[in-house]
Design a protein around this nucleic acid. Structure first.
Lengths: 238, 238
DNA sequence: CGTAATCAAATTGGATCCAATTTGGCAAGA
DNA sequence: TCTTGCCAAATTGGATCCAATTTGATTACG
């Protein structure tokens, strides 16, 4: 897809995510096309893609509406992510992981150890944490060498805050956030231990539980998914 | 989507599934459009959709290629389906199911009991079995009331023989097939028992194991996924 | 006054046209 | 003979045009 069409798609994703296009709103091709300064063609393509991603829902007869994403749906998606990543962790445990993947996981863990050994977290630490957190999870998923898992996860990842590619933290409670992310990091340690020792069932159960670390978002998000002011959001394109 | 565009999409899906477009083949818009007697526009739309479904893969720079679907990938997708339906069964067990859903499941079970009590299976029986088998699975998935599960499964379902919407059986070994499908049906019974008694973990484990009933396809399918002559394939649009 | 029917406006899907980018070949020079 | 550069053909994405379908509104009739 060309740079132009990609931009339309990304723009629409963001407009939906930040509520610029409110949930339930009916979206038509012509107004959106004019608003973005392009013709209807790339918008048409983007609408189909967004429908596949679950961000738009097509009406009975004509047109698309912005899908209302409730905290419940995000929680549902997180639960699905838990079982899928759990499956990946189990397969990786049973098949064994490559030395490169093992090194990558170990590097993620020691990076985190260095971060948390300071006893507090800065904003830059959070960026850092987010990066190796993503790398940790992606490495395990790739280590399963099961394309179907990747495919199924890529679907979930389009829902805001249902994927590992976006985290949020409360700037006004960095002590609490330190404890939360440190706990998450400790879970990484024992997940690696399980995988490294071929304990598939243990790795799976731990990874499932680990997904709940993200469940917090379903509590701070209102049904209209507006993020409170004192929260910082970090996202990556993946 | 209009009837015209849907037809293009379905036609292309079938052409990929039955090997008319061989795996690895490069597909261009213009030849396909001429072959189907339509303009490039609906083909373009269909290509994006097929890419989202995992049936096409876009090349580095230009064009799409038919994704080579190996028996391993089908097995991977079946494993994913197992954990997702297992999750649905567990949630359904824990939340409880509606009286309507319960009746539907019971009806599926007694229909099957009537079928298998004859001691043998005809081709029409297989059509019947396929219908209530799909209804049984879909009812459990819907009973989870977790949209994310449905979404994730709908992705898998596009890979041939990775979903419950297609089954195949060997006409030359109907005794063996009777035993196989009867076993499958017995699994339905105990899955229902677990769900009906709120035994979430048991329901989940049983449903996971039940998915392996489809693993047989990965053995009879050659890497070029040609179905042997003596097998009958039943598919539904769902 | 309410209901139904018809007509106009809006919206969407398909076809075609145009531009941009890439690929592949052919030729020329080292 | 091999490499490099340029040109032509192919392919894809975007824009615009046209047709078909739906929505809604207004009017006429019961």
């Amino acid at each position: 897809m060309s740079k132009h069409g990609q931009r339309v798609l990304i723009t629409l994703r963001k407009m939906i995510a930040n509520g610029e296009l409110p949930p339930g709103e009916r979206v038509a091709e012509i107004p959106i096309a004019e608003r973005l300064g392009v013709s209807r063609t790339p918008v048409r393509i983007a609408f189909r893609t967004l429908e596949q991603e679950g961000l738009l829902r097509k009406g009975d007869r004509r047109g698309y509406t912005v899908r209302a994403i409730t905290p419940t749906e995000i929680a549902d998606a997180i639960e699905v992510r838990g079982v899928l990543e759990g499956l990946a962790a189990r397969i990786a445990s049973e098949r064994g992981i490559s030395p490169q993947a093992r090194n990558c996981l170990i590097e993620c863990l020691s990076t985190g150890d260095a971060l948390f050994s300071k006893g507090h977290l800065t904003d830059e630490d959070m960026e850092n944490y987010h990066d190796f957190n993503m790398r940790f999870h992606n490495t395990i998923i790739e280590s399963s060498r099961n394309i179907a898992i990747e495919d199924a996860l890529s679907r979930n990842d389009h829902l805001p805050f249902a994927s590992v590619s976006s985290i949020a933290f409360n700037r006004d409670d960095m002590v609490g956030e330190f404890r939360r992310f440190n706990f998450s990091h400790m879970q990484h340690h024992i997940i690696f231990d399980a995988i490294d020792n071929g304990q598939g069932a243990r790795a799976e159960a731990l990874m499932r539980e680990h997904a709940n670390a993200a469940l917090r978002y379903t509590k701070i998000l209102s049904p209209e998914h507006a993020m409170p002011e004192n929260f910082t959001v970090i996202e990556r394109e993946d």
